[in-house]
């Protein structure tokens, strides 16, 4: 094992896949010479040259369509969209084109495209540089969406995404870029669509994504001291999501809290809660609770008040243990 930062795990994943397959290339704004606006592609232009690490104009709609077109013609582009907020500028390329080309054209084409994009708050970047929009994309048939929360998962999931023959959106969390964690020295992959059981427990299941996995772990530590046993699942993939692991856990604990940084309304939590209700409401001993951001843009100054945290998870778990269905 070796210790690595989340950001450098991204770099390693791209580097290894570009070494392995000459059709893999990195496209985006500032990814080449500058090494990426967060530094994720440092050194890659020097290693692979400007043909494979392509600095583009500030043209999100254009580069999204370009990457989709290159993908259907046999390349395996990794497209960096600098902030997830900027994905709004290229929705046609993602939703009407990349997601649909295969199905709409009767499976004649595949679209092996990866879109890497940093999301989330914590940097006081304000309303247009801090959003978590993963639910938008999970709502679109034809896309896959993953949200790695650790250096281990970001490397393994990004490598799986690059090898996948479908468009995969890899939602990084900027606040996690500096996080350190252990990864194997040798090559490994993390499968798309598989949750990770971060800790086993018996009283309540907490399903979390991205940064909220770590906030939920803090809450679980505190709850453990009070004698409450939390089973914490890191969903890792939003679409497809690991229903089996969630169902198995809920069948054991009979209580469920879902925690994500995105706005609570119409989010991943709503989908998980609705599905659990549809499939196994008889297993539930209490209403399902969700932890998410309030229904406002991410403010510059009040970001701390905005962002959901371990305290919110702690309170939700306490509440779900008190309430009986």
């Amino acid at each position: 094992m070796k210790e690595i930062r989340y950001l450098w795990a991204i770099n390693e994943a791209i580097r290894e896949e570009m070494e392995r397959d000459g059709n893999v290339l990195l496209i985006g704004e500032d990814v080449g010479g500058p090494g990426g606006s967060f530094g994720a592609s440092r050194g890659l232009a020097e290693r692979f040259g400007p043909e494979r690490v392509v600095d583009t104009p500030i043209s999100e709609a254009g580069i999204m369509g370009l990457a989709a077109g290159a993908a259907v013609c046999g390349l395996r582009p990794i497209l960096e969209i600098m902030f997830m907020d900027f994905m709004t500028v290229c929705m046609d390329g993602i939703v009407n084109q990349a997601a649909k080309l295969r199905y709409m054209f009767g499976n004649q084409y595949t679209v092996p495209l990866v879109i890497r994009t940093p999301a989330g708050g914590g940097l006081n970047a304000g309303p247009q540089h801090s959003q978590c929009l993963e639910a938008w994309f999970a709502h679109v048939p034809g896309l896959k969406v993953v949200m790695p929360a650790t250096p281990y998962d970001v490397k393994g999931l990004l490598k799986s995404a690059i090898r996948d023959d479908n468009p995969v959106i890899v939602v990084e969390n900027k606040a996690l870029h500096a996080m350190k964690g252990n990864i194997p020295e040798e090559e490994y992959l993390v499968p798309i669509g598989k949750a990770d059981i971060k800790r086993s427990g018996s009283d309540v299941t907490v399903v979390a994504t991205s940064r909220m996995v770590h906030e939920s772990a803090k809450a679980a530590d505190r709850l453990e001291k009070e004698g409450i046993s939390v089973e914490l699942l890191d969903l890792r993939s939003i679409s497809p999501w690991d229903r089996d692991t969630v169902f198995t856990s809920v069948a054991k604990t009979h209580r469920l809290v879902i925690a994500h940084e995105a706005v609570k309304s119409f989010g991943t939590g709503a989908e998980v809660a609705a599905t659990v209700s549809e499939e196994m409401i008889h297993e539930l001993d209490a209403p399902i609770l969700r932890v998410g951001a309030p229904f406002v843009p991410v403010p510059f100054s009040l970001e701390k008040a905005y962002l959901p945290n371990s305290e919110d998870v702690y309170k939700a778990v306490k509440k779900v243990l008190e309430r009986i269905l």
Partner: peptide, 24 residues
């Protein structure tokens, strides 16, 4: 490579195909 129901939607896709041709 497809007709496109989105006006202008095919332009970047075609450009990407040209990018792939040059790359390969």
């Amino acid at each position: 490579m497809g007709a496109n129901g989105i006006v202008g939607g095919g332009i970047p896709i075609a450009t990407g195909a040209a990018f792939a041709s040059k790359y390969k």
